[in-house]
Amino acid sequence: MSEGDEFAVATAGLTKRFSAQVAVNAIDLLVPRGSVYGFLGPNGSGKTTTIRMLLGLIRPTSGHHRLLGKAMPHNSGQVLPLVGSLVEGPAFHPYLTARANLQRLDSVDRHADPRTTKARVDGALDRVGLLAAADKKYRAYSLGMRQRLAIAGTLLAPRELLVLDEPTNGLDPQGTREVRHLIGSLADDGATVLVSSHLLSEVEQVCTHIGVMHVGRLLTQGPIAEVRAVSEPRARVETDRPADAATVLRALGLTDIAIESGVVVGTLGALVPDKIVAALVHAGVPVTGFAVTQPSLEDLFVSLTGEGFNVSG
């Protein structure tokens, strides 16, 4: 295994400048082999542009990247057959059936064996639950079914890397859950999965790694536990004497203490949470509610960017 082979995706200074703006700004994306990498960021943060560059659809302004250890786009003929991708939503011929659309995709793949096309197409349709609707025209498909068909398209051949751009767009909660399971099962098979999403909570549950994009920059990336460790758990005390509670918390060594009406919040640090309530009661501060909250990815994002998870212009 040569150096760089441990990453399914490795970019160095990857940049895409469109005439007016820098869509992707010198990012060093590292997706370890075997990981499920959640590529997060609001709409317009540069995720899709990055994915388009990874697949060789658009040319980087500067920087370079490797997929499965091989330099792109030079080796795309060898690498891309091992990469299944869903880019910026499903796209198929509307007047063909789902099955005919997958056969079309398979027929342009020079690595595909025509003798097994039928079995592979049916297998892929079955895996996304579309086999019963296989002979419907794509035109008649709902958005959720189209999304599933696009996922089926990535499963026509065995893959080492799956690049899924917003795979749950347009899916109902049940479909979203199913896609999460599918991603999990693909990872179990040994594939690396790069999944982009603007819905943080959706991705949180399946990912081993995350990277956060904001206005074209990759703010942070790494194993999900490490990224989360940046922001520590916080204690939240509900009381009608917030000022006194804050004094007690400060004395206990909590930091970043914030007082709102009836609520005091502080960062726990190394402190064991049990001690807090005892100390408060001991000091005679009435406690009406107490909780320790692990910050959500959304909170993390706000702490990284100083702003909400909104569309960046």
């Binding site: 895996r127 996304v128 639950g129 086999l131 609707a133 959720g144 065995p158 479909g175 199913e178 098979d189």
Partner: peptide, 20 residues
């Protein structure tokens, strides 16, 4: 489609690089 669960069978066509 909503009524049909996704299948969680392992991919059987490994190893991957054997696609002439």
């Amino acid at each position: 489609p909503a009524a049909r669960p996704l299948r969680h069978r392992p991919l059987r066509h490994r190893p991957l690089r054997h696609r002439p």
